[in-house]
Structures are given as structure tokens and as C-alpha cells.
Amino acid sequence: MLNRLKAILADFFQQADLVLLGLCCTATVYGIVMIYSATRYSNSNRPVIVQSVALFLGICMYIFLSMVDIEIVMKKWKWMVGFNIVFIGLLLTPLGIGGDTTGNQAWLQIPGIPFNIGPAEVVKITFTLLLAKQLAWQREEKRDLRSFRSAAMAAGHTLALMGWYVVISGDMGNALTFFFIFLCMAFAAGFALRWFALLFVGCGGGVAAAWMLDLIPSYMKNRFLVLFDHSYDVQGAGWQQTRSLLTIGGGVWFGQGYLQGTQTQAGEGSLPERHTDFIFSVIGEELGLVGCLVVIVLLAAIIFRVLLVAKNAQTPFHSYICVGMAAMLIFQTIINIGMCLFIMPVIGITLPFFSYGGSSVVTLFMAMGMVSGIKKRSPTMRRPGRPLPGRTIG
């Protein structure tokens, strides 16, 4: 058994993507250091301990999934469809708990696990795998990916999952992540641009109609209204982002110093959700613009690495998976930083690898482990200019 384990680890260190692992670990450790500062006022080390345990589990999952052949796993794709439906459905059981003041039922509290699990975090990965399988199957069956039928099949799959999740959880933020993953994967697969235009017009019209018919909850409307008028509902919908801007603005170029942030080290009411949704604001205050740029560079490097693996993937299926994983990171990064800068609505999207969240860290490492496994099974780098099926990636 010991010799077998040594052989597996030797194979991992020889063929897996150690650069990607190093970037992910660096980002997570950076996040843990800042989470300690953000929660220091509470005199509780639990968030740091949970995040550290999640990092260890994440590394284990990264190593394991680097060794797994996704092609073999996806032979049981019907089981994965059932898993998505049932796992989200668990939110309706006594295990489901609310994640914020809006009443969103978006978390599972499972006895014996030291952190709550967000089903969306796991389903983002399984959804990406299923959509990649669907797109690859359509290509293998010589389906015209530019046709309406092909576009409707992929869009229907996505909208069905989004609808199921939103109806049960009320969490629109993660539902939009599914939608963005679909858009990027469909674009990479070569879907006709006219279908994207039609989709945007349809979604835009639907949102406008829902707004005018007062079908959108008032708290959700207010989160958008404050973006256009920062003085609107400052004590309500705009409170978190107003405090976030104040916090970031206090850091200037090099910050006020680690553990020295005025708002970060103040009491409960100074900066809400400072270790989760607004960890970027904490970094801005204590480490300044330089610290924020390091965050952006690390996340950009991870995303670039994933897209590089996509470009050199052995099959379209593998390439689509990597594009989906990169899309997940891109969307969460843009939305979270935009939330902190008061240019995006607060929709409960955390900053990948940096924000507190055990299930988020573990599932992110799982996703990157799959990318590493794809890199491990890919041929040597293609010569520059060699195109992939669908649109060129990278």
C-alpha cells in the first residue's frame, strides 16, 4: 500500500500541473492571512482554522482528481444529472439553512462537517462537466452547433437547472454563475452569434417586464437602484457597499498596515461580511492598491493557466471543461470586486480562493484538480496557430 501511494505521488509530481496548484495555494494562504485580520476583532480563530482545514482537504482533492480520468467518470453522466437534482433538493429538507438576511435557503448544515456546504458550489462543477459532455456529444454526432436546435438544447439544460435552483434557494447570484458558464462554453464551442443576441434580447425583455409588473422583490430592486444613486437607501441596500468604499479608500497605495485597518479592526458594525463578500475591501484598506493588484494578478494567472490547458487539451470535451472552470472564476472575480467597488450589485458572490468558505475552497481545488488531470492527459504543447474545434481559445 505504501509503495502504491509513493508511485501515485511520484506520478502526480511528474505530470500534474504543479504551477496551477502553487498559484491556488498561494492565493488561498493569502486569503487565510487576511481572514485572520478580518475576524481578529471577534476574538475567534474558527474561520482561520476552518479555512486551513479546507485548504488541506482541497489539496488532497486536487491530487486525487489529477489522477482521475474524467472520460471514465462521465460514462455515468445520468447519475450526475440525478445528483444535481437531488443535491439541490436537499435544501428543502431540515438540512437546509438560510445564508443571509434575504431568506435565501442556499446552504446545507450536515452533522460532522465543520463548515456549511453550498450545493451551488458543487453543482457548478458537475454542471460544467455535463454541459461539456453535451456540447462534445453534439459535435461528435455532427450536429450543426450554429443551428437553433443545438443552441436550444444547451440553453434549455442551463435554464432548467437555474430555474430548479432559484425556485428552491432564492439565490440569484449563483444562478447567474451557471448562466455565465453556459455563455462562455457555448461561445467556445462555436454557437452562432445570432443566438447569443436573441438570448440577451429575450432575457433583457423578461427582466424589464418583471420589473414593470413588480415581480422582482423590493430588496433585489434596491440593490440595483443604489448603483445609479449611491445616496439612495444608504442605511439599507447601500450600507454594505458604502462601508466597503470607505474601507478601500482608506488604504490608498500601500495600505494602513496589516492588522492596522481602521474599519477592518473596528467592531461589528463597521464593515459587514468583511471575511466573506468584502475580503477585497479588507485587503484594500490594510495593504492598499498594491495588495489589491497582487490579488488580481494571482487570479488572472490562475485563469490564464486554465485557459492555456484548454487551448492544448486533447479533446473538445476536455477543452470545454476548462473553459467552464475559467468562466466560473472570471464571473466570481468580476462580480465580487465590482461589489466591493460599488459598481456591481451585492448578490452574495465570494472572491475565489480568498473569501472565507470551506465548501468554496474545497470545490475550487476540485475544479482545478480536474484541469490538472486534463493537462496531465494532454499531448505536448500545440504549435502556435493550431486551432481548436469551435472558436479559438486563448
Score class of each variant (00 low, 15 high):
167 V>H: 04
151 A>W: 10
182 F>R: 13
161 L>D: 04
175 A>I: 00
169 S>V: 08
154 A>R: 02
172 M>P: 00
150 S>H: 14
170 G>I: 12
183 L>K: 13
149 R>W: 05
163 G>C: 08
157 H>N: 05
160 A>R: 04
165 Y>L: 10
168 I>A: 02
180 F>N: 11
173 G>K: 01
158 T>G: 13
160 A>N: 04
150 S>I: 10
152 A>M: 11
177 T>Y: 04
155 A>W: 12
182 F>W: 15
174 N>E: 05
171 D>F: 02
158 T>M: 14
178 F>G: 03
174 N>V: 06
152 A>Q: 11
171 D>P: 04
153 M>K: 12
152 A>D: 06
154 A>L: 05
179 F>S: 08
181 I>V: 15
163 G>T: 09
165 Y>V: 10
173 G>T: 01
157 H>E: 10
155 A>G: 10
182 F>H: 13
155 A>Q: 10
159 L>V: 11
164 W>S: 15
173 G>C: 01
165 Y>E: 09
157 H>W: 09
174 N>A: 07
173 G>H: 01
161 L>P: 03
175 A>H: 00
181 I>N: 15
153 M>E: 15
180 F>V: 15
156 G>K: 13
180 F>E: 11
172 M>S: 01
169 S>E: 10
179 F>R: 06
150 S>K: 15
150 S>T: 12
159 L>H: 07
173 G>D: 03
158 T>D: 12
157 H>M: 08
174 N>G: 04
151 A>Y: 10
176 L>T: 07
174 N>K: 03
171 D>T: 01
161 L>N: 03
181 I>L: 13
177 T>P: 06
181 I>S: 12
162 M>C: 01
182 F>P: 12
180 F>H: 12
157 H>D: 06
151 A>I: 03
171 D>V: 01
182 F>G: 12
161 L>K: 02
153 M>I: 15
160 A>T: 04
168 I>V: 06
165 Y>Q: 09
160 A>Q: 03
169 S>T: 09
175 A>P: 00
172 M>T: 01
175 A>N: 01
179 F>L: 11
160 A>D: 02
160 A>I: 04
159 L>E: 07
179 F>V: 12
162 M>K: 01
164 W>Q: 13
172 M>D: 00
175 A>R: 00
159 L>I: 08
161 L>F: 02
167 V>T: 11
163 G>F: 07
180 F>I: 15
163 G>W: 06
163 G>L: 09
155 A>H: 09
156 G>H: 11
150 S>W: 14
170 G>N: 12
154 A>T: 09
178 F>A: 00
179 F>E: 06
162 M>V: 00
162 M>R: 00
153 M>N: 11
155 A>P: 08
166 V>C: 02
155 A>T: 14
166 V>H: 02
164 W>Y: 14
153 M>C: 13
151 A>D: 04
159 L>W: 07
176 L>C: 06
164 W>G: 13
172 M>L: 02
150 S>V: 08
178 F>N: 00
169 S>I: 09
172 M>I: 02
160 A>W: 05
177 T>V: 10
155 A>L: 13
156 G>N: 10
155 A>I: 15
159 L>P: 05
149 R>K: 06
165 Y>D: 07
170 G>C: 13
176 L>V: 07
172 M>C: 01
158 T>C: 12
168 I>W: 00
178 F>M: 10
173 G>P: 00
170 G>E: 14
160 A>Y: 04
167 V>R: 03
153 M>P: 10
182 F>Y: 13
172 M>Q: 00
156 G>C: 08
164 W>R: 12
